[in-house]
Simulated scan of single mutants.
Amino acid sequence: MEARIEQIKQQLQSQGYKLTPQREATVRVLLENEADHLSAEDVFMLVRDKAPEIGLATVYRTLELLSELHVLEKMNFGDGVARYDLRGDSSHHHHHHLICVQCGSVDEIKDDWLTPLEERLLIEFQFQVLDHRLDFQGICSRCSNKAKQEDPSNHDSEKPSTVT
């Protein structure tokens, strides 16, 4: 975690910003909850547990700054709530999401399946893709399995695929 904090500190410094204690507390919460897609309010509640003196406006400003500097990605999964996701330091592009329209869960696809498409766009249209995001909306395997258990007459032989 300390290496990621140092990397983010350097990203901020390269743009003329400092990693203040308030910003660091926010970054630490995001790192500790990296698997989740936290809203600003979620981040604030978790930051407040660690640093009660930090206000909601400070957390909002920090999230917006980190988003502008491409440390975070600000996203909306169709529920009207902005959520924040740390951009991984190991990948050129952001990961993709499987969004369940029933339970609202968000699962991630870490592989970048669009590299061949990007190469084709460059060759055919001389368009260099800098970044992209791909979200799939549907029914997750947990909801599908739950529905099958609740309705024994459902003899649907279709199996949900798993993503690794």
Results as ranks from 00 to 15, higher is better:
D36C: 10
A25P: 00
V129H: 03
I5E: 13
F136M: 14
T115K: 11
P152W: 01
F125M: 06
K148W: 02
Q128L: 14
V81H: 01
V43H: 02
S91Y: 12
H97T: 02
L65K: 12
V71G: 04
E41V: 08
V43N: 02
D135Y: 15
Q149N: 13
P152V: 06
I139D: 03
R83Q: 09
Q137M: 11
E150A: 08
N76G: 06
F136L: 15
V71C: 01
E119Q: 15
S67Y: 10
I54A: 02
Q126P: 02
E124M: 10
R4S: 12
Q128F: 04
R4E: 15
H92M: 08
P152F: 00
W113M: 13
E41K: 12
Q137Y: 14
D131K: 02
H70Y: 12
Q22P: 00
D107S: 13
S67C: 11
K9G: 11
V71K: 02
D107V: 02
D151V: 07
D135A: 11
Q128H: 11
I123V: 13
K148D: 01
F77W: 01
T62M: 01
E2M: 14
A82R: 06
S90T: 12
R83I: 08
G88S: 15
G104H: 04
Y17P: 01
L114E: 04
P160D: 05
D111E: 13
S144G: 02
T164W: 03
G80R: 07
Q11G: 05
V129A: 05
V106Y: 00
L134V: 14
E34R: 15
H70V: 07
E53H: 14
S157L: 15
E64P: 00
F127G: 00
Y60S: 09
K18C: 04
D79V: 10
K50D: 09
S90D: 14
E108V: 15
R61H: 12
V106E: 03
S67N: 10
E73N: 10
I54C: 01
A51M: 14
A40M: 04
V47G: 06
R133A: 13
G104A: 07
E53R: 12
L63T: 04
Q126I: 00
G80L: 06
S39M: 07
K110W: 08
L134T: 11
P116T: 06
I139Q: 03
T26Q: 06
G55W: 03
M45G: 01
Q137E: 14
G80V: 08
Q137V: 11
D79S: 08
Q10H: 08
G16V: 04
V129N: 02
E118P: 02
V43L: 04
D131Y: 00
N33F: 07
D79T: 10
R48W: 01
D131T: 08
A147S: 10
E24N: 13
C103R: 08
A57R: 14
H37V: 06
A25G: 09
L86Y: 05
P160L: 12
T162F: 10
W113S: 07
V29L: 07
D89K: 09
W113C: 09
D112V: 03
E150L: 08
